[in-house]
């Protein structure tokens, strides 16, 4: 038996650009993962609820609008509230390095700065999945 890795990719916040998110989605697919794409302008509530219904291992959030400090931790806490503690949240987009420690403390597992190669993202996901389900 081999578990597929399932990932939900979402764009919380108000900016309407999802090119980066789509590139990541395709890279994860090409690495053999199943990616549920939920589109732009998603509320943290809709993202968390979709993640639970879809039974994913990861939620990937992309933010360009600067609202990540509020939105990312909110997704983490909503997932916990829904009982889905095992779902790992990671993020990308335009996120200043100074914000990273605070986000990680709030339960975001990893933040990929602009310019991260999709290969690095894939590699991180594969490792994190292996750790979670050895």
């Amino acid at each position: 038996m081999q578990r597929k890795i399932r990932v939900l990719i979402a764009k919380p916040g108000l900016d309407g650009h999802d090119r980066g998110a789509k590139v990541v989605a395709r890279a994860l697919r090409d690495a053999g993962m199943e990616v549920i794409y939920t589109g732009i302008r998603q509320t943290p509530e809709a993202i968390a609820s979709a993640a639970v219904q879809e039974g994913v291992d990861f939620v990937g959030l992309s933010s360009l609008s600067g609202a990540h400090n509020h939105l990312f931790p909110r997704v983490v806490s909503l997932l916990r509230k829904l009982g889905a503690r095992e779902v790992q949240v990671f993020g990308g987009g335009v996120i200043p390095a100074a914000d990273v420690p605070r986000l990680k403390k709030a339960g975001v597992r990893e933040i990929f700065p602009p310019g991260t190669s999709t290969q690095d993202i894939v590699g991180w996901l594969l490792r994190a999945a292996r750790k979670a389900r050895p």
Partner: peptide, 17 residues
């Protein structure tokens, strides 16, 4: 790859909650 991008949900997300 054996992977997939599942995009149907995008159209129904208003019902997610």
């Amino acid at each position: 790859s054996g992977g997939a991008v599942l995009g149907d949900r995008v159209r129904m997300q208003r019902h997610a909650r």
